[in-house]
Simulated assay, not measured.
Amino acid sequence: MNHKEINIRQLQESDKSQLARLANNSNISNNLRDYFPNPYDDEDAESFIKMTIAQDPTTSFGIEFEGELCGVISLILQNDIYRKSAEIGYWLGEPYWGKGITTKAVSQITEYGFEKLNLIRIYAGIIEYNTSSMRVLEKSGFKMEGIFQKAIIKNDKIWDEHRYYILNKGYIKNKDKQL
C-alpha cells in the first residue's frame, strides 16, 4: 500500500456528516471511553470539530485515507509532573478496518508529538478484548508496559487494561540535557 494515501489533518466543519456516520457504531464505541457518545449524531460531530479547531496546539486530527475522512486520532496532553507525556487515543470507521491505516496514523501523530510538542512519552490503555488496537501499537513501535488488573468497567463488565508506551528516542539520546 502506498502510505502517501494516509494522512492526519485538522478536522473541518465539512467533515460533520462523515464523522457522525462513521462514529455512530457500537463496534467503535465499545472500545473507547464512555464519554464517547453512543449513539453519535451530527450535533456530537459538530461540537467535537469545533473543540478541535479551537485547540492550541492542535492535538486531535482527522485520519484521511485516499482523500476521505475515515477516523480520528488524538494526543491527550497530561499536566503537572506528567506534562511531557500524552495519552494517545484513536478510532477508525469500520469500512476502513484491516488496511493498515491506523498504524500509519499512529506513527504520524507519534512523530508530531515528539517533534512538534516535545513530548518524551506517549502511552495508551487498551481494553483487554481489543487485540486489533494492541497490534496497531506494537506495529508502530509501542511496547507493552503492563496489565492493570480489572481496571476498566465497560458495558457493565470489568476488564483488564493493557498499557503500552513509546519513548522519544531523541530525548533518550540527550537525556542529560535540561528540559
Rank of each mutant, 00 (worst) to 15 (best):
M1I: 02
L19E: 09
K84E: 07
N130C: 09
Y164I: 12
S17I: 07
T110W: 00
L137C: 05
E46W: 09
K139S: 11
E66I: 04
V136D: 01
R33F: 09
P57A: 14
G67W: 04
I158H: 11
K175D: 06
N2S: 11
P39T: 05
A23C: 09
Q78E: 15
A105C: 11
I28L: 08
N27Q: 14
P57L: 14
Y164N: 01
G146C: 05
M134R: 04
E46C: 09
G146K: 05
I76P: 03
D41C: 08
E5F: 06
A20D: 15
T102L: 01
P95Q: 11
G71D: 00
I8G: 01
G98Y: 02
N2A: 10
K173P: 02
T103V: 14
K116F: 13
E94R: 15
I6W: 00
I88D: 00
R21H: 11
S74M: 10
I101Q: 00
K116I: 12
N31V: 02
T110F: 00
V136K: 02
S85H: 12
N25M: 08
K143M: 06
E115Q: 14
A151C: 10
I101A: 05
S17F: 09
I49Y: 10
G93S: 04
I153H: 03
S107R: 08
I73D: 00
R21T: 14
G146Y: 05
K175H: 15
Q12C: 15
D56M: 10
R83W: 12
C70F: 00
D80M: 07
Y40C: 07
G170T: 10
Q10C: 11
I126T: 13
S107Q: 06
P57C: 15
K169L: 13
I152K: 13
Y171T: 14
Y123T: 15
E94D: 13
Q12K: 07
K99P: 08
Q178N: 13
E68R: 02
